[in-house]
């Protein structure tokens, strides 16, 4: 009896999985250390700007994966 998990079947699928993992890493330890500074960017705290950037990065990543057919 094999106990394997369902995995992406194509290189596009693996690329998509990698992109999603990378996006999650961008908002977590240790990457978040880079943005945890007393700096004002565009009038806002750096961490706030980074949170807004993450909103758009996540959206564009999902759009990109939809476009290349990397999910399913």
């Amino acid at each position: 009896m094999k106990a394997t998990f369902k995995r992406p079947k194509t290189s596009k699928g693996w690329l998509s999985l990698g992109l999603i993992a990378f996006i999650i890493l961008l908002g977590s330890w240790p990457v978040i250390h880079l943005f945890n500074r007393e700096v004002i960017v565009f009038g806002l705290p750096l961490l706030m700007v980074w949170s807004i950037v993450l909103i758009f990065l996540t959206t564009f990543t999902m759009l990109f994966i939809n476009k290349i057919g990397g999910v399913d």
Binding site: I20, I24, G27, S51, L54, I55, T58, M62
Partner: peptide
């Protein structure tokens, strides 16, 4: 951040 990720 977490609401954004929940969309995934």
């Amino acid at each position: 951040v977490y609401l954004t990720y929940m969309a995934i």
